[in-house]
Design a protein around this nucleic acid. Structure first.
Lengths: 229, 229, 229, 229
DNA sequence: AATGAATGAGACTTCATTCAT
DNA sequence: CATGAATGAAGTCTCATTCAT
């Protein structure tokens, strides 16, 4: 298994922000810091609401109520409902990227065994993110139903993971510990599909045992195939 | 690759129909046929609307207008908006099942080569369904965002495909052409994940070449793994 | 207690009928009889529906369904929903009048004792009508809420009973067994109010004992007043 | 004639209010007062609409339009159409109770003449309420046609007046100025029936003369009966 | 800057009535 | 003549967004 989300620049450009954070030399003022804090809190509250009740069932009033602020206040921080969900998704992706971290670079390993170990590590990391907080995949999944644009964004998100995995594969092919004839890009897509499948499976049955077995099965398919030898 | 959707009984029970089709010896009367036809047309129109604009952006009026019928007429055939989307999904699943057909039984093959051929055939069938009409996966994807129940239903749908694939694997293990130590269930899940991934990929790039490469990569991973020999 | 509803001519003129029954010398044809029969059945079914569920909660379809006829057929016998309720009320009033019958004429008695006996008889008759079939007062009561015109009609109906009671009182005054200084009209109104009150009471507690006590109390008030002697 | 509506606790419990009035030491704030004012205005507007057009013919839009507010605003103050009518009725009953006031207690009199005077006073008060604003009895009457529950409620309302009247009668019996053998409860019911009758009569002919004559006739029946001496 | 009262577009749904079969 | 499929006016209610305080 390979890594994703190395840097956010691979993803569709983040949407237009309401507030442009002007980073002056002197650093943000107290007011600016408070404002950013409130934005953060609204995003978090919205994340929870959207994930738990879904986008359409969540009202602006729900988000505001969870924070104990007036729902008019919401509109001082975000343009509209669509704007906030956009930011929630952006934030989510950023968090995922940050979690996977930089430690796992495609060029950090040079043998198949190292690769397997790395895969396992990354897989465990992903599993942690998604199964520790099932709201994450839940939100991503339900976001696809918001409208055409958001569905495209979710598909883009999934597609954007392929090059990341591909980089690992490329590295492996280059160093000779992976098949020379690999269709790197397509294989990356296939591998990411398996990961996606395990994430969806975890939504229904989040038991660690199930996750562990699935993860093992994925690695087995990857390295050994399913055919008898 | 293995088959899915052998029989519909594996899926959540279809919801209660509005119209009970009385099967008389003489066959359905003209009126009954007309009624069934209208139902069919409404389902199709709803399918198009939901797929193109999404569930929430689609009004009953849109569906009715597309057919040139009064929107009151809609309610003579379906109880409410939720009812129609349920039927649209049911219909979709049924169509997929029908397309995959009975020709591909898990016990129809006995060698690995036969199995690969069969996989290829089924893969091609699935690809045809999904890429000939991208609205199908589009709808299935966005349906997950309708509400909690529908998200569960979509996850169930995906989960329900695992045992079907598993049956093929089981058959292969039993006949010796697949690894004896396969975790059949988990491996099936992983394989179906790859298929799901390719379906999603097809939504963004529906070119046959891309599909063909993906399909080939999936089979390569399955049978040979990615490790160099 | 005194009598009401001597002849229907005291009531507001019945509304425009949909079908004008042409009484030819030869008598009604078979078809005409069948038609009248169906009208009768529709009125009865409507009566039941209106009384049980109320005017607004009753649909034309409910009435038709109760008879096992198509609801389109309804409109071949009555102009619209308003028309049928009008006929149901007319029919009800006619039935009440018929029940009270001609036997109780204001000039049939000449002593106070006779009068008391007659009152008792008529009171028992009314009680029978209203408490044997609580749907009757229920319908009359709820009809007052249909619209302005119907409320007026119900008030007219109640008002129309005063002259009937007054005729009895007049007779009594004339014959000397009732007070010479009676304000006949107003007293009649007051007496009918007591009857109305007992009818309403019967809707909540239809027990015969309660009815009997109420009836006795009314007669006691009428003949003896409430003051200690 | 006797008194009704001594205390509201005799009536069905008022339904759950939308707004909980928090009684702080400092008294209601300006906003709270404005809110209560708007509630009041909505209730009044609804009262007018219901009385003039009837419950079913009145739309929320009508009520809102009469006040010049958006119809969405209505729903900030009342849950739904049923809720508002409930409050309108509650308000009506409260107003009636308040009008009759506390001055007329059953134990405030001890002779028949006092009692007659009190009856006259209360009767005049009732007459004023009902004939000054005919919409009041109109609404109470038509409310009975809203649905089963409301009809029950109106019948309960009428029934609830009996014990109040009975208390006066009881007092009179106890003090010896009313017949010792009175069936207090039933007689109270009968008397209230007469009052109800006069209220209904006032709806058709609201002239004060008519009311005065009716009131006199009721008292005459009560104290002297109708029989010649 | 924060608030929440007001708003009205818009969605769903019902049902009396019409009319082609 | 009977039928019931079709219709659309009308009504209820929600909620994202605005704006005066």
């Amino acid at each position: 298994m390979a890594c994703q989300f190395r840097n956010v620049s691979s993803f569709p450009a983040p949407c237009n922000r309401l507030v442009t954070v002007t980073t002056v030399e002197a650093g943000p003022s107290r007011l600016e810091r408070r404002k950013a804090e409130t934005r953060r809190e609204i995003i978090d509250a919205a994340f929870t609401c959207f994930a738990e009740q879904g986008y359409h069932a969540t009202g602006i009033a729900d988000i505001a109520a969870r924070l104990g602020i007036g729902h008019g206040t919401f509109y001082r921080y975000f343009e509209n409902k669509r704007d906030i969900v956009e930011h929630v998704i952006d934030d989510l992706v950023e968090r995922i990227v940050a979690t996977l971290g930089a430690e796992n670079a495609p060029d950090a390993v040079s043998t198949l065994d190292d690769y397997r170990a790395q895969s396992e590590r990354i897989g465990a990391g992903l599993a942690r993110i998604f199964s520790e907080d099932p709201r994450v995949p839940q939100l991503l999944l339900s976001a696809a139903g918001i409208d055409d644009a958001m569905r495209e964004r979710m598909l883009d998100l999934f597609a954007a993971t392929a090059p990341l995995t591909a980089a690992y594969l490329e590295h492996g092919v280059h160093h000779g510990y992976l098949r020379a004839d690999l269709d790197v890009e397509s294989t990356a897509q296939a591998i990411n599909g398996m990961i996606l499948g395990s994430v969806l499976a975890a939504l229904r049955d989040p038991s660690p045992e199930r996750q562990a077995r699935l993860s093992a099965a994925i690695r087995a398919v990857m390295y050994d195939g399913i055919a008898a030898r």
